[in-house]
Simulated scan of single mutants.
Amino acid sequence: MTDPNQQLDLLFGSFARSSWRWECQGDYAIDAAALQRWRDGRPADMTRKAPWLQYIREITAAGKTFDRVRMLTEPPTEYLRWLVEQTDSNIDAGEDIRWITQSAAAELGMPSYDFYLFDDSRVAIMRFGPDKLLSDLEIRDEPDVVARHRAYRDAVWPRAMPHSDYYAPRST
């Protein structure tokens, strides 16, 4: 069986123009120490995130886009409250991240699974196990499947709130 994380890494390395993600789980696996730092009100340790941020800077410098919409459960889970406060570094690196409430996403008929849309021509449907880790990646490029996922993106993107409008960091 192929490791879904390796499959995803290959997709990250092969798209030519754009990557777009629908992110709708209320919780994902997280480093417990990172969450505890946040609970304690201490600044994030950016060491683990540095390779991702460097990757985003490189692809956006090359003219590629990396966008996502994150769904906020109602009420937001602790994970999502933490994530909101961790997103500025992604924005600074070049990602365009937007937020939408669960009820607004439901009104739009958004799916209950996460997916990436690469170059408007390939979909990577993500499934997570009980441990909240990525357990399966289904890669599809059939025109009807791609068109359905482009329609999801086109419906939610203009309704989602840019991160800078949603969240203003606490002043220190």
Rank of each mutant, 00 (worst) to 15 (best):
Y116V: 12
V69N: 14
S89D: 13
S112G: 11
L117H: 13
Y79A: 09
E58F: 03
T77P: 10
M126Y: 08
Q54S: 15
F118G: 10
D120H: 12
D119C: 04
R81A: 14
L133H: 10
I100L: 08
F128G: 06
W82F: 15
A105H: 01
Y116G: 13
L134E: 01
E95A: 03
A93G: 03
N90M: 06
A124T: 00
A106M: 10
M110E: 06
E58T: 04
K64L: 11
T65H: 04
E95S: 03
I125D: 09
R127F: 03
Q54G: 15
F66P: 04
S103D: 12
V84Y: 00
V69H: 14
K64M: 07
G63H: 00
G109F: 05
V84W: 01
L72P: 13
D92E: 09
F128A: 06
D67S: 05
D114Y: 00
T87Q: 14
E74Y: 02
W99Q: 11
Y55A: 07
R122M: 05
D131W: 06
K64N: 13
Q102P: 11
Y113R: 00
A105T: 02
P75G: 10
F118H: 05
A61C: 14
T101E: 15
S121A: 12
F115V: 05
Q86I: 03
A62H: 11
L134S: 00
M71W: 03
R68Q: 15
E74I: 00
Q54W: 02
L134G: 10
T87S: 10
I97C: 12
A106P: 13
D120I: 00
E85T: 13
L108N: 15
G94E: 10
Q86F: 01
E85V: 04
G129L: 02
S89K: 06
K132E: 15
Y113D: 04
D67R: 13
Q86L: 05
M71V: 14
S89L: 08
A93Q: 03
A62I: 05
Q86C: 08
A105L: 03
V84R: 03
D114A: 01
D92C: 02
D88W: 00
T65Y: 04
D131V: 02
L108T: 14
E58M: 09
L72H: 11
T65W: 04
E74A: 03
I100C: 07
N90T: 07
L108V: 13
T65P: 11
M126G: 09
D96C: 08
T73V: 02
F66K: 07
E78F: 00
R81I: 04
P130W: 02
E95N: 08
A93H: 04
Q102A: 11
R68D: 13
T60V: 09
A105I: 02
N90C: 07
P130S: 06
W99S: 06
W82A: 15
E85W: 03
D92F: 08
V69G: 13
R122K: 13
R57Y: 11
L108C: 12
P76V: 01
D96G: 09
D119A: 06
D88I: 02
F128W: 10
R81L: 09
W82V: 15
V84A: 00
A104E: 15
I59C: 10
T87F: 01
T73S: 11
A61G: 09
L83S: 08
L117E: 10
L80S: 12
I125V: 14
K132G: 12
I91W: 02
